[in-house]
Design a binder for these strands. Structure first.
Lengths: 249, 249
DNA sequence: ACGCCGCCTTGATCAAGATCAACCACGTGC
DNA sequence: GCACGTGGTTGATCTTGATCAAGGCGGCGT
């Protein structure tokens, strides 16, 4: 990937990959996996590094293996909106398009499993499993993007913050085993600025609303990035939407 | 489709279909088209009719043939956000999911080419062309959803209105032949309320900003729904983003 | 130790847009 | 004709969140 000198990691076997069953490769069988294994390259990026700039040619695409990256776009005067959060197993880039529509920035240190775009496009053309998985992932992302539009367009600052915390709490609980329950603790992978960019707010408003939620006992916060949710239902309630965050089937 | 008694139209041959080359079926060859032709049904809906309610089971899916439908979701207290505009050739529904994540409402009278979900899912599993086309369409929709997130999160009311008008003007110009040029006239397919829902504003703000743009000579407006853009570049300028609206390749 | 920088918080003030409230221009039904 | 409903506009006022400004805290380099 351009503009950076990422470290190239060792070559992890696909079979041992932590995201094997959730990434683009999830539906591929052993034989196809071997081919993917042969053409993939691991790259690492440090927190803050930009993997791609909006408008720039994307010669490679890939999957986040660990860490968090963000998708964002800026207006000419500097106003910035994050339009996606890329978590482990999420796909970076899109087949059939040369230019990146958005900036891709590492929010934490990130490990990415990359492929040369050209090679990957060829693989996809021959692998229904790969294509099917990409379709499913894209449909899911579209749903969450639309969900986010509701938040951006209609929720209050407090509801936005509560929604974001609920999402991170839920994902975090899911990662570490259980369903979101009471008393769960997690740390925020985002700075206040990143939260603001994600929610369409300023950092001051984010900070104030975090303090307000703490004051109201919805969250506990020893350090700015260490959050405890004593009552998950209460947090969801503050998020504004009745359902538990849009579980569909 | 449930909750409605749509009129069933005559059976238009796929080969004569106005959206033949832009809809899901765009990549399919003659032999597959015959199969689609055999299982499709046309349905019509009147302006204001709801095709699906969020959370409801979707037994059928399909393509908008003509008219405009909207995708929207409401918060429990009634705040409403439109999350997508479905124009001719756009796809309604998603394979692999039973429940509709959003309300689908006809904004004008709408003609839809529908398939039973089960049958369509089977077709997709067997047709790479269909699947590939759906992937491309979904990726495009994802990009525009993200574009819209930037608008919702960071643009001012005036910029939002200008952006929407620019988009509609551009699409309208494209439909009727030429590239967006000066002095183009079109009529808004949306009420002020629909515009407000789309832009995350109130109808009063929409109305005021429309008046302001008129006062400033950016648009002309004899009737509320009849717009003339004397200087397309000036309109784009008001929209805030420098590029001409995100043309990518 | 010190200063500095990044990240966060808090306060005071301001302004964009929401809300509340009339009112207009229509079409439609009686 | 008139009453009524829908969609749109405009004005006055209020509220939310942005902006401007100051300061706290922890880490890090010298």
């Amino acid at each position: 990937m351009p503009n950076t000198q990422p470290k190239i990691d060792m070559h992890l076997r696909c079979g041992d990959c932590p995201i094997r069953h959730r990434a683009v490769c999830a539906y591929t069988q052993a034989d196809e996996l071997v081919k993917l294994d042969a053409i993939k390259t691991y790259k690492t990026f440090k927190a803050g590094e930009t993997l791609f700039w909006a408008g720039e040619d994307m010669a490679s695409i890939g999957s986040v293996v660990n860490g968090v990256a963000t998708l964002a776009r800026s207006l000419p005067d500097g106003r910035r909106q994050m339009v996606g959060l890329l978590l482990p197993s999420d796909f970076i880039g899109r087949p059939g398009r040369k230019k990146a529509p958005f900036d891709v920035v590492a929010a934490s240190d990130v490990l990415v499993c990359t492929f040369q775009k050209k090679q990957f496009d060829e693989m996809i053309a021959k692998s229904p499993a790969l294509e099917r998985r990409l379709l499913d992932m894209t449909l899911d992302e579209l749903d969450s993007a639309r969900e986010w539009m509701l938040l951006l367009g209609r929720k209050t600052a407090r509801e936005k913050i509560a929604s974001l915390l609920a999402i991170i709490a839920r994902r975090d609980a899911a990662m570490s085993k259980l369903t979101p329950t009471d008393g769960l603790v997690f740390n925020l992978p985002l700075t206040r600025e990143a939260m603001a960019d994600y929610l369409g707010l300023t950092i001051e408003t984010v900070s104030r609303q975090m303090s307000a939620l703490k004051r109201d006992g919805i969250i506990e916060m020893e350090e700015a990035r260490r959050i405890c949710v004593p009552d998950y239902a209460a947090l969801l309630d503050e998020a504004g939407d009745d359902s538990d965050g849009g579980v569909l089937d």
